[in-house]
């Protein structure tokens, strides 16, 4: 009984998804309405965050603006979170994701990851020096703060057996770390670098003790059926252009993000081509 009910429910869901799915060519749709709708983050400084006037700014917002400029359309930004961005893209509510999206195999089944990847960051932890961490394996069965929906959460849990305490926002997680609710905060290494380099006194007794690992590429994403269509190809060209022109290198500088080796490599590689 339960199974059949569930089946009916799922079928209904699928039908809704089909009815509202992006069957139209997204590129035509964008040009026709004169606006590209991009899913971005507004709570992930400095990639995408709010300024006190309510405007969303950040590195990924600059990238979204660049895409809109190339298409000669207006930019409409929809703030997304890890749990809804892929659904929004599938439903057609947004045309593009530029929202710190890790390019993983399971996600590739669902949405179209544009290559080359525009960014890559590794995973590391921010921990008080007194915790005396040396190796990832020391995290076993210890409480580790994390952000909900981050791609590296699974790895840290499965590989090292850390007991994750996941928060919705970065300030909440940092607060928990400072209050000693967890031994370390697992996060993007570039952001930890920027935090520590910021010179804030309260981080003076903290460090990034482990070897950065799990270099994870980030991708902008288009609807899966269009990855190899005109829209996907266009976005691929844009991404290559970004690397070639060194746009991301200069944006890292602009937003105070420590240079990522991946971005440097890609810039050198594409510049030579």
């Amino acid at each position: 009984m339960l199974k059949s009910l569930l089946g009916v429910g799922l079928a209904a869901l699928a039908a809704t998804a089909l009815a509202t799915g992006a069957s139209a060519q997204t590129l035509d749709k964008i040009k026709q309405r004169g606006t590209i709708v991009v899913g971005i983050k507004n709570d992930y400084k400095p990639w995408g965050f709010l300024d006190p006037a309510g405007k969303i700014v950040g590195m990924e917002i600059d990238l979204a603006e660049d895409v809109a400029k190339r298409l000669n359309v207006k930019l409409d930004m929809v703030p997304v979170v890890a749990s809804n961005r892929m659904e929004f893209l599938q439903q057609g509510r947004i045309d593009l994701i530029i929202a710190t999206l890790g390019d993983t195999a399971p996600r590739r089944q669902v949405i179209g990851m544009v290559e080359p990847n525009y960014y890559a960051g590794g995973t590391n932890v921010l921990a008080p020096k007194s915790a005396n961490l040396k190796q990832w394996t020391q995290l076993k069965d210890r409480k580790v703060c994390a952000i909900q929906g981050a791609y590296y959460n699974r790895r840290v849990t499965q590989l090292y057996g850390a007991d994750l305490v996941a928060f919705t926002g970065i300030p909440e997680a940092l607060n928990a770390l400072q209050q000693g609710n967890c031994i370390a905060f697992v996060f993007d290494n570039t952001l930890i670098d920027s935090t520590l380099a910021g010179g804030d006194a309260k981080w003076a007794s903290y460090e990034m003790p482990l070897v950065t690992e799990d270099e994870q590429a980030w991708a902008i994403a288009v609807p899966l059926p269009e990855l190899n269509g005109a829209y996907g190809e266009f976005m691929k060209k844009v991404s290559i252009d970004w690397h070639k022109a060194g746009l991301i290198v200069s944006l890292e500088k602009k937003w105070g993000i420590k240079p990522s080796p991946y971005v440097q490599d890609m810039h050198q590689k594409h510049k030579a081509m």
Partner: peptide
């Protein structure tokens, strides 16, 4: 979002 932008716990 404001808390994230400020980054001060």
């Amino acid at each position: 979002a404001a808390l994230s932008a400020e980054g001060r716990s």
